[in-house]
């Protein structure tokens, strides 16, 4: 495959011509990553605060468990969720298999340990001091929670970026749960694999470049967000 040049040209063409298929896949990839990340952050922030301000021993045990969960292969997670939401599974009647929401469930499970451990790390630094100072100035429980997040915002934003990147580049869960149905659940990553299986390596590479470009744009945007909070 000396055709890196060709791949780059193809990628450029895809981007510039706003190829409708690629656009569709790109939109799905971003959508899934965005919603999954948001859902997980919303849950892990309060959890992280509770864990961070608690007993040291307890916290250590949790971190060990989380780190272990992060080694789960994505295809295994995909398989387990598949068995739950497939027709024969407990949640079969919700018809979540081969849908975007189904994929999101799998991705949420995937990034949950990652984000929680990052959030705990983000909050642990000056946690007691921040909480005490805020309370001394009269903060309510909610106000303390919010200011804790505000003070740790850079580290938290890093966790969000890490989670987003993990999901948008993920392929095992997206394939197994999504089924790679062209007009419904095909994403940038699953179409890369599809093209590899069909033997169209150059095209697969081009899609990969599109994915990276997308990721770059999102990260630039996040950086701007971080920067403006000076």
């Amino acid at each position: 495959m000396e055709n890196f040049n060709l791949a780059f040209l193809n990628a450029l063409h895809l981007l510039v011509s706003l190829d409708s298929e690629i656009l569709q896949y790109a939109w799905r990839s971003v959508y899934i990553a965005l919603i999954s990340t948001t859902l997980v952050i919303v849950v892990t922030l309060p959890m992280g605060i509770l864990i961070a301000e608690n007993n040291f021993r307890f916290k250590r045990a949790i971190i060990i468990v989380l780190n272990t969960l992060m080694s789960l292969p994505t295809v295994l997670i995909g398989l387990v969720v598949y068995s739950f939401i497939g027709r024969m599974g407990i949640f079969g009647s919700f018809k979540l298999l081969f849908t975007i929401p189904g994929i999101i469930i799998g991705e949420v499970i995937l990034i949950f340990p990652l984000v929680l451990s990052l959030v705990i790390a983000a909050l642990s630094r000056d946690n007691t001091q921040i909480t005490k100072t805020a309370k001394a100035l009269g903060a309510s429980q909610l106000q303390t929670f919010l200011i804790l997040i505000k003070e740790s915002r850079y580290a938290i934003l890093s966790s969000i970026i890490a989670a987003f990147g993990r999901v948008i580049g993920e392929v095992g869960i997206a394939t197994i749960i999504g089924g790679n149905a062209e007009k419904y659940t095909r994403t940038l990553t699953t179409s890369i694999v599809l093209n590899i299986n069909m033997g169209y390596f150059d095209y697969a590479l081009a899609i990969g470049i599109v994915l990276l470009t997308l990721s770059l744009i999102v990260n630039l945007f996040m950086q701007l967000l971080q920067g403006s909070k000076r």
Binding site: R87, M88, L97, G179, A181, K183
Partner: peptide, 19 residues
């Protein structure tokens, strides 16, 4: 129509599972 492209064997398994 939602087309799920899998191998023949996998497709049949989908059929058996009612998926």
């Amino acid at each position: 129509i939602k087309v799920i492209p899998k191998g023949t064997g996998a497709s049949m398994q989908l059929g058996r599972d009612g998926n």
